[in-house]
Amino acid sequence: MCSREATVNDDAQLIAETLDGKPAAFGQLVQKYQDRLYNTVVHVVGSPEDARDIVQEAFVQAFVKLETFQKTSAFYTWLYRIAFNVAISRGRKRRPTISVERARETGGSEPADLGAGPSELLEQRERCRQVREAIAALPEEHRAVVILREIDGCCYETIAEILDLPIGTVRSRLHRARLQLRELLKDLLSVDDGFDEERAGK
């Protein structure tokens, strides 16, 4: 997976151990990737509860199907692909509902800026809410692409592999998703621009 090739060998070792009858090795894989996968999935599906279930299901399916894992791709990519398939199968039933408050309560890991005052914290939360709502407003196929790129940092090739799409489709969908977000977050971005210009002026 792009910048994470170094982990592939480690993962391969853990996979081999798992297939050799050491499930604890798979436990290490879970511990290694569960938060990262969750962070991606929760932005895709919006619901922390659903995201948790999807992450768990993806790992379970990965374990059950581990024999079929092709070493040609990274485990993480394969795991993502499973997770997205699970998410898609569930997501077709309902639109994502971003619940920032619930995400904070359940996921609970939104880091606070320790140096920020109460008003700044409120402002941060408001910005997060707006961004999440904008993401949730995207069409499903656009949302997945932009999250994989912006939240998870996947390269186009990896996104194409995870979502089983041609790279050209990834590129076009990503651009359209960004244009929509640009429109949805127009105010936010202009504030940022103003903030940046103000800071540059100093």
Binding site: Y38, H43, V146, G153, L185
Partner: peptide, 16 residues
């Protein structure tokens, strides 16, 4: 930058 600045969501338990 805005999207990447979103707080990272983590699970509060080990699912393994």
């Amino acid at each position: 930058s805005t999207l990447q600045a979103l707080p990272v969501q983590r699970l509060d338990q080990d699912l393994s």
